[in-house]
């Protein structure tokens, strides 16, 4: 199993419960806005502590309330592409891309620098500051930064939401390439049915 997740999250007064397993490839978490999809990604990344449950990815236990396991975010080796991208504004594109290189160094899943740049078509952006990038460029840099950090799995949160219609196809193709060329399990959040049906091997309804 790529993902084996059973957990409850407390968000204010609400209790959210999730349970799913998924095989290799791309698993889409599909549901309306506000259903707690991003909260689930945050919990898998270690940014949000579940009230109870278990998170196992690729056979590695990241969180288990019963066994008192709770790996820190930096130990989980996830490549998280946030919906709001979160590129570091004070660093160039190249510095952003190299930020996770320390962990990637020595990781058996590490992807090559040239490979990723070529895959994403961001060779010419290296000297730019994040604020000067267009939506599509910033999106590709954010994906590149996650891929270059030696991830064992990817979390993609609505990667098409902040991209205009013209760039949408391009990013979609890119995600298909990442899905097919890199053997990384992907957890993909979306509220768009067509997008999910095109990309996903496994669909998990949320909410």
């Amino acid at each position: 199993m790529s993902f084996d997740v059973t957990l409850t999250l407390t968000r204010g007064a609400r209790q959210l419960a999730y349970a799913f397993t998924a095989g290799p490839g791309l698993t889409a978490l599909f549901g309306p806005s506000g259903a707690g999809k991003t909260s689930l990604l945050d919990a898998v990344a270690g940014l949000l502590r579940p009230a109870a449950g278990r998170i196992v990815v690729n056979g590695q236990t990241l969180f288990d309330s019963g066994a008192r396991i709770d790996l820190r975010p930096e130990q989980r080796a996830c490549g998280y592409v946030f919906q709001d991208l979160r590129l570091f504004p004070h660093r160039t594109v190249e510095q952003n891309l190299r930020f996770g290189a320390k962990r990637a160094h020595g990781a058996d899943t590490a992807l090559g620098w040239e490979h990723v740049l070529e895959l994403l078509g961001i060779e010419r952006l290296l000297d730019r500051m994040p604020a000067t990038l267009s939506g599509g460029e910033a999106q590709r840099v954010a994906i590149g930064r996650a891929l270059l950090s030696g991830p064992r799995f990817l979390l993609l949160d609505e990667p098409l939401a902040s991209v205009d219609a013209a760039r949408r196809e391009e990013i979609l193709r890119l995600i298909e390439r990442i899905r097919d060329e890199l053997a990384l399990p992907i957890l993909y959040v979306s509220h768009d049915r067509a997008e999910v049906e095109q990309l996903a091997h496994t669909i998990v309804p949320v909410g």
Partner: peptide, 26 residues
């Protein structure tokens, strides 16, 4: 923005490196 610090953590930076590389310069 604490969300930038979260991003740094997911990229493998511990608390100290997150502080020195992200928070302090910002």
């Amino acid at each position: 923005d604490p969300r930038l610090e979260q991003a740094a953590r997911t990229l493998g930076a511990g608390r100290w490196r997150t502080f020195t590389a992200i928070t302090l310069p910002l």
